[in-house]
Design a protein around this nucleic acid. Sequence first.
RNA 1: GGGUCUGUAGCUUAGUCAGGUAGAGCACCGGGCUUUUAACCCGGGGGUCGCGGGUUCGAACCCCGUCAGACCCGCCA
Length: 524
Amino acid sequence: MHWADHTAMRLSKQYDSQVIASGITPSGEFHIGHLREILTAEMIHRACLDAEIDSEYIFIVDSMDPLRRVYGFLSEEYQEYIGYPLVNIPAPNPDGTPNHEGGNYANHFLQPFLEALKEIGVHPKVVMNHETYDSGDFATKIDLAIQNKDKIHEIIENISGRELPEEWFPYNPIGSDGSMDGVKVTGYEIPYVSWIDRHGVEGRSDIRKADGKMPWRVDWAARWGIHGITCEPAGKDHGASGGSFDTGIPICELLGSKPPGKMVYEWIQLKGSGPMSSSSGNTIGPIEALNLVPPEILRYIIARTKVKKHIDFDTGPSLFETADEYERLVSNPPSGDNLNKKKMVARDTILGSLRLSQVNRGDDPSKSIAGVSFRHLAMLAQIKSNDQDIWDSLNKSKHINGEPNLALIGRLSRMRNWIEGAHFPENARIKIQEKMNDENKEKITKEQRIFLLSLLTKLENCVWSESQISQLIRDTTKELEINPREGYVALYLLIIGRDYGPRIASIITELGKEETIQIFSKSF
RNA sequence: GGGUCUGUAGCUUAGUCAGGUAGAGCACCGGGCUUUUAACCCGGGGGUCGCGGGUUCGAACCCCGUCAGACCCGCCA
């Protein structure tokens, strides 16, 4: 059974209806790591719906979280905003300076991410956490937390093993300058928390407003109750023993609610360069990823991997493999009855992955079949600049019959992006040689050499079309009575520097007469 | 130091929760097709399930130990 279906089953035994949640702090550019958070939750949500379990999926944006430091992509001017809720500070310009007309910081990073989610078929109910504070929905929990301040203090110290300062308080008010840093609580009388800030200014915060927030570990536990969350997969950082999940459970209970069960997912790493991090620039954004691969394959990458396994996201060769694997499975899904238990489980797991990879819930996976492997399309896209030529070629090779479908058109345009970008795998790249290198010259026999020279004279005076060129190659091998294979190998060595490759006549046609002849004449 | 997760074929992995003959794909090798598209079709080899013990009629699966990797215990998906 697929992990999402399994989780859905488990949840249905505990609660009648589900609220599945994700939570992310919009402190910088979103990356595909965040996509795992979102998709893990969203797939469980879909699995619930598919099992006819009532379910809602919410995405809580931690817009009240303070700016913790000046990240690498920000200018020094952000120093003054440290400690401010992200929703209250200006968005950065591309150069990192604050843009006072550009809306707030949280939204700046959130909006493009939501756009990407739409394309991936994720339509969450978005909850801006600052609005939950501002609406007063947090007030009861804040009051309870303050009343139980010592117990919460103890829970955090005991479970996380970390010492909290004496003056620790389960509510951080915003001071006179807008920052939560250096604000000391001096008293509490419902609904006001009074304080003195680092400038010596005194004031009070209304717990029914966004005048402050609870610290992370308490905030998280409180919101489980406020939204009635039954499942919130958490990154393994939160899942560690003594981490915020472990402290959240008793705190949530203390605040009068039933916590969700613990569920922890592994991180996505960029192959070879460790965990993703916006500050180190070691990141691929969801938008960038969508420019390379179709959304269903992005979903498939998450769906096919068990939650507790880490994913190496590799924009190179293994992306080809995964994409082709998807294509294969979709066009030829596992089936059959009378299987033993293990095979049935395996079959259902794969079918589950395909089902959950669909952009729209309930879509027939076969609609996303492009009918061509990524590898093959990559090759065509490199040797043919005109899309129509590619459709013609695919018709000729019987990959498609007639006009290309939408899936295929979208795939080709992404393929062209991929090829142009830095992420395209080198071994799939076709490199046209300037001339034959010495190493390859040695590989060539005398007959092959004669073949190439003879072909050259024919090419100089022919009509430049693929069928003509193809014909000339075959004619020449016949005339010289050499094995056609030998002739092709010689041509491949000459033009792309390897002894095999895609249909050579296509490449030559695409190169044009002048350039082709150049390669020939520079080589001999 | 304390803890969590992961370890199955060269690579990616299914199967571990409910013990019952280790199963795929990629890659590789061989064959076919033949106008050589890196396409397509057929076949094949390849696994002491990290290691050691225990429980059991029977262990990849349960228990104990051990090794390796990743991560957490301030903030991070």
